[in-house]
Computed example of a mutant assay.
Amino acid sequence: MLITFSALTSIPLLWLQIAIVAVWVLFILLIAWWVNRFANRDPEIVRKIVHIGTGNVILLAWWLDIPAIVGITASILASVITLLSYRFPILPGINSVGRQSFGTFFYSVSFGILVAWFWHLQQPQYAALGILVMSWGDGLAALIGQRFGTHKYKVFGREKSWEGSLTMTLVSFVISSLILICTQGNNWQTWVISLVVAIIATGLEAFSFLGVDNLTVPLGSAALAFVLIQQLVL
């Protein structure tokens, strides 16, 4: 009788969790639509609003303890939709970056991999770290670099700016520090690991092509933080 009751009560809770995430995603898409329609038609601004806003879904998944299967399923669906959008105009504003890129697809895939990996290990904070380093770090680096990046350098033919890369490093360091302080405590290991993660994430973001940094940055950041914690703290 207890099992039946638990099963019945868990179903409404799961749908409530999904509804909260869905409302957040819809809210972000509405903001992006409003900016595109009324405030600023720059497609890069719209892309970064979606890029950063949807990245925060990982925090909701972590805090609400959403089952891994939900995140994995959402990742698969998003990946299929983004792949189709490269052939059909499903997400024209999101995928228009002025160059050939599969960044949106890799972004969706990385979400599913990190959820599957770290939910299984019962260490969701590392999935959150990886996704947020990508969403906030890369997102703000692109905006700052395009608007204020006057000191340029090239990597594999792609032009980058030192201002954008510095932004990536600083934001990645802040995000990593906040998450590790909350989960591991305020100690020297937290600050050292956060710095290492920030530097490596910046390198992965710089040495990328076809948008593959949307896969290498979150996976690399999460994996590096996880391994270093095991070696230096546990």
Results as ranks from 00 to 15, higher is better:
Leu143Phe: 03
Tyr126Gly: 05
Ile45Leu: 13
Ser161Ala: 10
Leu2Val: 07
Phe118Arg: 06
Ser110Leu: 09
Asp65Leu: 02
Glu205Ser: 04
Phe118Leu: 04
Thr54Ala: 10
Phe207Cys: 12
Asn187Ile: 11
Gln184Ala: 11
Ile11Tyr: 15
Gln231Asn: 00
Ala142Ser: 15
Leu60Lys: 01
Gln122Asp: 15
Leu60Thr: 02
Phe106Tyr: 15
Gln184Gly: 07
Leu29Asp: 11
Val25Met: 15
Ala225Thr: 06
Phe118Cys: 07
Val35Asn: 07
Arg41Thr: 14
Gly157Trp: 06
Leu64Trp: 01
Asp65Pro: 00
Asn95Met: 05
Lys152Gly: 03
Gln122His: 15
Ile175Gln: 07
Leu204Lys: 04
Leu170Asn: 06
Ser208Tyr: 09
Trp117Ser: 07
Ala7Leu: 11
Ser10Ile: 12
Ala22Gly: 07
Asn56Ala: 08
Ala201Gln: 04
Phe102Trp: 11
Tyr86Phe: 14
Gln231His: 08
Gln100Gly: 06
Pro89Asn: 02
Ile31Arg: 00
Trp34Ser: 08
Ser135Leu: 08
Ile3His: 04
Leu210Arg: 10
Thr73Cys: 09
Trp117Cys: 02
Leu195Glu: 05
Leu64Asn: 05
Phe38Trp: 13
Lys160Tyr: 07
Val133Thr: 12
Val174Ser: 09
His120Glu: 11
His51Phe: 11
Glu205Leu: 03
Met134Trp: 14
Val50His: 06
Thr54Gly: 02
Pro12Gln: 12
Gly53Trp: 07
Thr169Ala: 15
Gly98Gln: 12
Ala222His: 06
Ile69Leu: 04
Ser110His: 06
Phe27Gln: 00
Phe88Cys: 01
Pro43Asp: 11
Leu59Asn: 02
Leu2Thr: 03
Val115Cys: 03
Trp136Ser: 08
Leu114Asn: 08
Thr169Gly: 05
Gly149Asn: 08
Cys182Phe: 12
Gly137Asp: 10
Asn40Gln: 05
Glu44Trp: 00
Leu210Asn: 03
Ile90Lys: 00
Gln230Asp: 09
Ile11Lys: 08
Ile66Asn: 02
Ala206Val: 13
Arg87Pro: 02
Thr73Ala: 10
Ile131Ser: 04
Gln100Cys: 00
Gln146Lys: 15
Gly203Tyr: 04
Phe5Ser: 07
Trp119Ser: 13
Leu29Thr: 12
His120Asn: 13
Trp62Asp: 03
Phe5Gln: 10
Phe102Cys: 01
Leu64Gly: 05
Ile175His: 05
Val174Gln: 01
Gln146Leu: 15
Gly71Thr: 13
Ala68His: 01
Leu60Ser: 00
Leu232His: 05
Val197Met: 03
Leu30Phe: 14
Thr183Asp: 04
Ile58Asn: 01
Gln122Gly: 07
Leu180Gln: 12
Ser194Asp: 01
Gly53Arg: 04
Ile113Thr: 04
Ser75Cys: 08
Leu195Ala: 15
Thr183Cys: 03
Ser172Phe: 09
Leu219Ile: 14
Ser10Gly: 09
Tyr153Ala: 09
Asn187Arg: 03
Leu143Cys: 04
Phe207Trp: 14
Ala206Cys: 12
Leu228Lys: 02
Leu83Lys: 04
Leu8Glu: 09
Ala142Tyr: 03
Gly55Trp: 09
Gly103Ser: 06
Leu83Phe: 14
Asn40His: 08
Asp213Gly: 06
Ala78Lys: 05
Leu13Trp: 10
Ser177Glu: 12
Val50Asn: 10
Leu234Ser: 14
His51Asn: 08
Trp33Lys: 14
Ile193Tyr: 06
Phe148Cys: 03
Val155Thr: 13
Ile81Phe: 10
Leu166Trp: 06
